[in-house]
Design a protein around this nucleic acid. Structure first.
Lengths: 152, 152
DNA sequence: CGATAAACAGATATGGAACTCGATATATAA
DNA sequence: TTATATATCGAGTTCCATATCTGTTTATCG
């Protein structure tokens, strides 16, 4: 559902968000800290910079830092440049004529599934992810408790 | 979410289900009818045969046909040999310690999304998909009507 | 000014899924 | 029994996301 790039982006930005100081962090050091291939992360952070989520500073003493407060950055915003979840409306069965009118048997279930996930991406901020490292659970995110056995 | 193989499998089996007669259908003719790469579909049908969904017959006049009634075959059963949706419980953010105890911020939303989709795969039979080609919508599958604007 | 440290940019390799090909086995038909 | 039509099997090829490499710019420091 999410590409490797998105996964790395969320983890790296989360790491940046835990560093309260407004200092520049090196791409390489973040990569080594989190076990992400350094050159690959460099590209990802670059993308985040062009999109306006990160600021970057070249030269000695430079690096990356968040451009805005972590609470104002949604996961959807981070993920969108890599996977384009918002624009994909293709039928999961590959049917040509699949839409609200002529729907395939999985259309609405698939749409509901996607919407659930996309809504969560919108509702979750980078600050939420960063906070996770300390608490581990969230009031708005407790298990529904009746879905656990839906398909096992 | 679903691999190309699964998509082709569902379409091909659906096609087989619409042919009421218990005659053998050629892999190649199905592929050409549905616009699927013929050798690739051959492999897929083969897998469906070893799993017990299709019967196969070699030699002149041979081909493939459904081994059971289409109403008794769930989409989950078709898809499982290709993508192994039932066994994947990995964290979508790649966190090591992500489970019911120490959950990442997306854990339960992701689980709910997956469960919605998996439940639909279980609940939908091949006969439902085949019937789609004529009707186009299903009573149990109507749009929730309030989810449509969840994230747009 | 030169040396160094960093982001930046583009080309190149890798791995796995998607797809193809050629040879073989097995059935029917004449 | 021979020819032909079909599934079956294993190896090869292509393609794309992932990952790496090489060099270029831009800033700071001595």
């Amino acid at each position: 559902m999410l590409s490797r790039s998105s996964e790395y982006a969320v983890r790296a930005l989360s790491f940046l968000a835990t560093r309260k100081e407004r200092s520049w962090l090196l791409s390489r050091s973040i990569a080594e800290e989190l076990g992400i291939p350094p050159p690959f992360l460099a590209k990802i952070l670059q993308t985040m910079a062009t999109v306006g989520i990160l600021s970057s500073q070249r030269g000695r003493g430079g690096g990356f830092r968040l451009q805005r407060d972590a609470a104002t950055i949604s996961l959807y915003e981070i993920v969108e440049p890599f996977d384009h979840l918002g624009h994909r409306t293709l039928c999961i069965l590959g049917q040509q004529l699949c839409g609200e009118e002529h729907a395939c048997p999985l259309h609405f279930a698939w749409k509901a599934s996607r919407d659930t996930f996309l809504a969560a991406l919108h509702a979750t901020s980078l600050a939420d992810v960063a906070r996770m490292e300390f608490t581990g659970s969230f009031p708005w995110n407790l298990p529904p408790a009746d879905r656990s056995d839906a398909h096992t």
